[in-house]
Write a protein that binds this DNA or RNA. Structure first.
Lengths: 216, 216, 216, 216
DNA sequence: TATGAATGAGGCTTCATTCAT
DNA sequence: CATGAATGAAGCCTCATTCAT
């Protein structure tokens, strides 16, 4: 009994070990430039072991998306759950949530911001394509509801909440890409400060009347 | 002599034909999923012919960056050359310039917005890596000077011009990525309107005093 | 002691269970297309268990030949033991014996008729190769003695008993192959009737004088 | 012009060289035990070259069937075309035709006699399955018509022509298998004499009245 | 200069076999 | 004894690159 339990835990540990290294390699080198042998070597298992847990290279790649949904549902939902909180405060916390998510699992978030539907079409099943898109859509919807709340609270000037949500989301993703390159090339890490600056920038556009803030 | 001249022109035409099809295929299918034979077939030349003009697949890929610099130098420089123009007007024209560039050469611009230093490291020489980075840096610098001009003109509120330039640039690139996916998945094309909305959003943050505009 | 006895019986039961499923799979899918895991799953044991009883996949395969020898020794010997019986009657009973053997253990007989020395050379040890060949040789010898008996009885016209035995044996094996394909492709089962027709055909050639029969 | 012609001839020569060695290896070692590298090495070409001419290992295998149909249509049709010839004489010539075919292309004929519908199902497309089956069916039909002709000529006793055709065909294929094993194991080659003996055996069953012959 | 057939290294995947429990 | 997870060699196939014409 105890044995079965241990086995199960070891199996899960091994799977998540493989996923960790796979995510790291996939996001660093891309799907095509990462070989199954690379992953096996990094995770310190034999090539064949990968196929005990994943049906194919694609399957392994897709499995990385699942944790992303958890971030999505749990994290974002919790952060935005307090409807009474001023929208600008919530937005600041969202930026920090993204930043923390990045610190915890950079590879996962990178899959999100570098998602290219046209390129992944060849390597993703329709189902996974759809899951991916749905994850992004939900993120944008959270932003949209937040903007609406800000307007309802009288703190945000009236805007097109849908378009504004897209702008905010795009800005965040663009920052991830930019700062990631900067860190890779320069070694300097400005992600958090740029994210925060972007929030102030956004708020200085959205906040109405006396709340209007000066940027970062 | 006339013959040599014709030969030279034919050669250049052939090269640019190859580049056109290569750019199209690379950006549609990615670097690794595009074979040299794919390119040869699309350009209607033999496989071996590619190697007359490009030393390797990488070399061919890098050669696509050159036109990007032209956009950079020629287009952006010209668009921002009139120092007397109000910065907000210039920014609106920049957004349209980006949009036109995308219409003319979507593949080129995509290389820019999907640039991932870590991923390309394996497939790019340091030299080309540097050229790529320099291109982006110049773009950001143009934005930076524009923000500075806006402040000098008294039209923009005082901000950190460097950070703000990064935010603007990141927002543009994020929008390209987002709208490109949306178009691929939904078939609807909102690129120009989202770009324009982003400019108004930015300006509603930056413009000082009575000029402050309501967003898209 | 009773425990040891039970253990022994369980072991034998397990071995013969494995052999049953192995034979079924080998003959349906061929040696190379049948994996040890296939066999383990069919026999409802673990993969490793197979290696408790068989040194290798080859060894397992060879072990299937043993029952074939039993058919050979026991069945054929018994069927042809009555030296006083008219040879033609014996031949008819041999055909039925083959047919019954096929019904009981189709896989075993198939190994016999599809035996290809050149192909099996790579996968069989010389020893097993020899056992296989010896089995076939004994079958042919039984036929040969039968033909000789028929001639001695004055019922068969004088023929080369060796060659005739080969012809009969080849005909039987050819019929197995042909009818097996027909059944697989058409779903119709003509094995027994074709075997019987072949016996009558053979007898119409061999029987001398007034006994000469009309075929199938 | 002459160049194109030479190229075409070289290409065909290369294809038939590959086919020759592939056929040899496939029939000696079987489909699964023959690797593409084996074939490439035997034909003295690179692995990739095989894929210039054949889409897959299966495709290469199937391509071996085509020559078989030529034997079928051309050879058998020609041999049996003279409707006035006594059926027994024709049968003797058919046996020799088979023997010659075997001498010319043993691998091809072996594919025929070792054809196992159940086994090939996994490795053959339905189309090729059907072509294979059709080839065998045509062979049997030729035998059937021959038997009918023999009866019409009054040389053969009345029999079920269909069943008799199957018996003859099965006998031939069984002999190929048997003699091939014998030659492989003993080094002695009795194929032709056994085939001829089988014809005499068959005729001693079929021929009516005074023509009835004594066996080999 | 242009061609495209040929090359062969490298990637994904399967599976016989081992071994710790 | 029995298990089944882990191993890693080997197979099929692709494709960047070369070279004879």
């Amino acid at each position: 009994m105890g044995v079965a339990e241990r086995r199960r835990r070891e199996k899960e540990a091994r799977i998540s070990l493989i996923l960790k290294h796979a995510g790291r390699l996939f996001s660093k080198q891309g799907f095509e430039n990462t070989s199954m042998e690379d992953i096996a070597r990094a995770a310190e298992v034999a090539t064949g072991t990968l196929y005990l847990y994943f049906k194919s290279k694609e399957d392994l790649f897709y499995s990385l998306l699942t944790p992303m949904f958890r971030l999505n549902h749990d994290g974002l939902a919790r952060t935005t759950s307090d409807e009474a909180e001023p929208a600008d405060a919530t937005l600041r916390r969202i930026a920090d949530l993204f930043h923390e998510s990045y610190r915890a699992e950079p590879d996962i978030l990178r899959i999100l911001w570098s998602y290219d539907a046209a390129r992944y079409q060849t390597v993703m099943s329709d189902t996974n394509q759809e899951r991916m898109v749905e994850a992004i859509r939900q993120h944008v919807r959270v932003m949209e509801r937040l903007v609406e709340r800000g307007m309802a609270q009288g703190r945000f000037r009236p805007v097109d909440s849908r378009v504004t949500a897209i702008l905010i989301w795009s800005m965040f993703m663009g920052i991830f890409q930019y700062e990631n390159n900067r860190r890779h090339l320069r070694g300097s890490d400005h992600l958090q400060e740029t994210l925060r600056a972007s929030v102030e920038f956004i708020l200085s556009s959205l906040l109405s009347g006396p709340d209007r803030a000066g940027g970062g």
